[in-house]
Every structure is written in structure tokens, then in C-alpha cells.
Design a protein around this nucleic acid. Sequence first.
DNA 1: GTGGTCTAGACCACT
DNA 2: GTGGTCTAGACCACG
Lengths: 83, 83, 83, 83
Amino acid sequence: MSSTARGASSQIAESLKHRVTDGVYAPGTKLPSESALCAEFGVTRNTMRRALSALEKAGLVVTIPGTGRTVRDPDGPTRPSPP
Amino acid sequence: MSSTARGASSQIAESLKHRVTDGVYAPGTKLPSESALCAEFGVTRNTMRRALSALEKAGLVVTIPGTGRTVRDPDGPTRPSPP
Amino acid sequence: MSSTARGASSQIAESLKHRVTDGVYAPGTKLPSESALCAEFGVTRNTMRRALSALEKAGLVVTIPGTGRTVRDPDGPTRPSPP
Amino acid sequence: MSSTARGASSQIAESLKHRVTDGVYAPGTKLPSESALCAEFGVTRNTMRRALSALEKAGLVVTIPGTGRTVRDPDGPTRPSPP
DNA sequence: GTGGTCTAGACCACT
DNA sequence: GTGGTCTAGACCACG
């Protein structure tokens, strides 16, 4: 069992974060749609949206209504001022 | 060609109106979902929603967000102003 | 008094087991919700959940979070090791 | 119509914020339960919880799982270093 | 055809 | 008996 999160959405969020970290979802590319992810993980949209909200709150993805979600480039234009 | 409507949504609207008129969709019952109707008529949601808007504008159905559409009872309590 | 159980939850568990055994709750059908059963037996959720846990531990029902409880088919595909 | 928010939960959030601002819900007192507010506003728990999340995000209330929500005292102990 | 919001109702964990 | 999370499915607004 995971020792840090309880509930489906939290565990899914962890999985998705790893995919971004590991480059499975590369910066600048689009994530699969909510529907596709729901089908893959076998959960409802409500649950998946909760997981994706965590990714967005963590700054890993950006959401564009009507279009989809894109993996943020950590060296991209939204980063304010690296040393 | 039809003599009363030319766009796809208008023709679908006419079909659906007949179904209400003919009692295929009885007063007080729910219409099939947008998805189901899209599949049946082979059109996109945008088109179907335009058709359904016509039904609502004509006072044949009422739309309940998050629930669906219901056929209005023409003798029901919600009729605003009969002549 | 009952001769097999003494706590409220145990007595309720016995009642529910009989309902499954007697086919009042048929295999494959859903049990009433926790709320409904609480109302019927006049107990709190904690008590009822303890009773239902006994049913699940006895392999009579399966619990599906967010959906409800279903009576297990003793001859169904989920049976682990028939002779 | 409101000019700043669209959707039931946003409008309910505004109403509840006013109640806190106007002292209808006084600092240190408990808010009505989710169920009670759902009944009053005629929405589902999902929708009400979205509205209440907005109050919490705005720092107007604190949520204690298993207990309820309490109106934050703006001069209370969480305020850092008053004169 | 995406994400955004809502309905309706369930079980779960903790107080 | 509260808040927390989940299932299942609908309609809505925008691109």
C-alpha cells in the first residue's frame, strides 16, 4: 500500500506525477483527455479531475478549457527568474 | 427535399417534435440523452443541441441541467399564458 | 433472548444473513443502502456498518465503494476454489 | 443577475460570504452542516462543498473533519503579531 | 470534442 | 452525525 495517500484520486495523482517526472508525458506535449485517462484508470471523471487538479496545483500541467492539458516546461517562459 | 426546413438541426428538430406530438415521447417522461440522440441521428452535439433548443423554445420540453430533458405536459401547471 | 448473539450489531447481522439465506435478498441484487437499513432497524450507522461487515466477512455480500453492497452468488465466477 | 460569477456554487459562495461579512454567521460560531445548507439552497452536496471550499480558500472559515466548519475570527489566534 | 459544472446518491473515516 | 471521497451520468461553454 502507499503510505502517503489514501483514496483513488490521490494515488492516481501520484502515478501521473511520476509520468511527468519520468518524461512519459514530455514537457510541451498534451496529456491524454480526461475521458481517456478515466478509461485507463477505471475511474469516473469526477475522480480523475480531482487527480488532475493536484497536478495543476503542483505546477506540473496547465489546463486550457476546450483544448486540454499540457505538460509545463520547467525551463519555459512562465518560470520567473532562475539564478 | 423537405419543404419546411433545410439545415440538419432543423430537420432533426422536426423529427423530435413529431415524436412529442405523436406521443412517442410522452409528457412527463425524459428524452434520451444528448449522447444517445447524437448516436441515433449521426450528428455532433452542437447540431443536436441546436435541435433540442428549438424544442425548448417551442415549449415542448424543459431542460434540467445535470439531469436531462423532460417532455412538458401541455395541460400542466407550468403553462404560462393560454389565450 | 437470542442464543447465538448478544450485541445489537450481531443480532442485526443474523437477521440480514437469514434474508440472504432465505432469498429475501437474492444473489446479484443490491442490498438496501446503509441509511435505509439504519432507518429500518432503528440503529446508528456505526452499528449497522458493524453488522454489514459481518456479512462481508462471511462472504455473503461484496461492497463496492460509492455504489453499494451486492449479494454474492455462491455459484458465481468470484468463488475462489471449488472442488 | 450577478456579473462576476456563473454557476450555482459560485453564487452560493457569494451568498455565504455575505453572511459572514454581515455577521449572520458570527466569528467563532459553527456554520450549519453541509446537509442543512444543501436543503436551504436546494443543491447537492457536491455543489455545496464547492461553494464552501471557496469560503475556506478565502480564509473565512476553517474546516474540522468529523466536526464541522467554524467562522474564523479575523482578530483571532491565527493573526501573526498584533500590537 | 475538450474541459467545466451539476444532479443524485452511495460508502468511508473520524469525532 | 460530521466532513471526505467515490460512482454514474447528465447538460453547458468554448475552441
